[in-house]
């Protein structure tokens, strides 16, 4: 049985990864290698390997420092990778290295419904803490009139026209620099919140359809795919749990922690979450 997200152990894999591993041999490539993590792409699916101490990605796993260090030293983009029977084999120029995920502790990274009275969202420590963040200084896209108009559309998503939604989503998908463009992070945060509070929300489907024609980065796509299936990284699950504890101090600490994630990725996602909460409040007011 999958453990819940707050019980991170050294060799851990996301429950979403377990679901999405191929059932027959697949050959793929190392996609990208960073200081403490790497991604592989197999059958158009991204799998993330991060070092212990980092957040568990919805489409990834956590390795011990030693093993991760070995992989980071050996792997280079385009190296061949084989996935078969939960075992991932890296064929690198410096040698062959394997990771057998079958013995990894599985962590449930599925979003769970947040049950608080809608009218009290505005009173939660999460909303209040997010409200206090100076997003304009922290996020990766310029908060000019165009961006603000888009945020306004998201804030009022229930009453936005199709044209407005189209404008907002077109504006955000793939917008910004980096591996996960800021616009994608904002959309992800936004969807994350709405999926956590609402039984059904057709905005996700709207984004999903749009992604078929408007491309973004492979890594953003991987996050979207997991999110559409109801899975997010352990870091955001932790943040969402703050709705239950409702402690301002704890929430602020989490915001700071998330803020360090990526170049602006953390704050981008938090902005999306804030806009999501705002949209829910606005909907309630109506």
């Amino acid at each position: 049985m999958a453990k819940r997200f707050n019980m991170i152990v050294k060799e851990t894999k996301s429950s979403f990864l377990s679901l999405s591993l191929p059932d027959k041999r697949q050959i793929g490539k190392v996609h990208s290698v960073f200081a403490t993590s790497l991604n592989i792409m197999v059958n158009n699916q991204l799998i993330n390997f991060s070092q212990e101490g980092m957040s568990l990605s919805a489409h990834g796993c956590i390795l011990g420092k030693k093993k991760m260090g070995t992989l980071l030293e050996l792997c280079r983009p385009k190296d061949i990778v084989k996935v078969e029977n939960d075992k991932i084999t890296f064929y690198t120029k410096q040698g062959v290295e394997s990771v057998d995920l079958s013995d990894f502790t599985e962590m449930d990274l599925s979003l769970t419904k947040i049950n608080i009275a809608d009218q009290s969202i505005a009173g939660t420590s999460v909303f209040q803490s997010l409200k206090a963040v100076s997003f304009e200084e922290e996020i990766g896209i310029a908060c000019d009139g165009k961006a603000k108009a888009v945020f306004d559309i998201l804030n009022n998503i229930a009453t936005s026209s199709e044209e407005e939604k189209n404008k907002a989503v077109t504006f955000l998908i793939g917008r910004g620099k980096g591996l996960t463009p800021s616009g994608d992070d904002i959309l992800s945060g936004f969807i994350m919140i709405r999926k956590s509070f609402l039984e059904k929300d057709n905005f996700q489907e709207y984004v999903k359809e749009k992604l078929k024609v408007q491309k973004t980065t492979d890594i953003s796509e991987a996050y979207y795919n997991a999110l559409f299936s109801g899975y997010v990284s352990s870091l955001f699950l932790t943040f969402l749990s703050a709705f239950e504890t409702n402690e301002t101090l704890n929430t602020n600490q989490l915001i700071k922690l998330i803020g360090k994630y990526g170049h602006t990725s953390g704050y981008d996602t938090l902005l999306g979450m804030y806009l999501g909460l705002q949209s829910l409040i606005n909907e309630m007011e109506e």
Binding site: D79, I80, K82, Y91, T92, K93, Q94, G95, V96
Partner: peptide, 16 residues
């Protein structure tokens, strides 16, 4: 041998 080219050899990606 183990992805190391010996003699007159092309540089081939390691694989299965």
């Amino acid at each position: 041998i183990s992805s190391v080219p010996l003699a007159f050899t092309n540089v081939i990606k390691p694989g299965n």
